[in-house]
Amino acid sequence: MAHLKSEQVKDLADNLLRMTNGLGNYRYENSERLSEDENQRIKELHEKQLSHTTELYTKSAVLVMDDVETSLKQIDTITLETQELYKNLTTVQTVLDRATSVLTLAIAIIGLDPKGITASIKGLLAKTA
């Protein structure tokens, strides 16, 4: 089983289900001709086969991990990079806000407005923090 790929296991499960359903259909179509004992034996056998089939589907789903490991790593790296880039791009807004604060300070200095200078410095400090 260790050498089988998830898709191969899934195909095996599909085939097993077809075979199992064949057994079930045989019982449903011949129920009148089968003895009680025969009917019971086929019923149990059918149920056991179904139980193995569902287990195979689960096995295939678990084996998918081996097949996607590299792809998962690649996609995660790309996603991380896009997030980083997004963060860097949004900082341009910070730069712009800061530049605006400096400009307001400059205007206050040109206008020799002490209150305005104090308020601008406070604003600038708040933006830097």
Partner: peptide, 28 residues
């Protein structure tokens, strides 16, 4: 490439394996 692979295996697990389990449940 990796995205198509992930989408393919997501499909395998859902319409292949999970749907298969539901098919077994119907038979049972």
């Amino acid at each position: 490439g990796p995205l198509l692979k992930l989408l393919h295996f997501l499909e395998l697990n859902l319409t292949g394996n999970l749907k298969g389990k539901l098919e077994v449940q119907k038979s049972s």
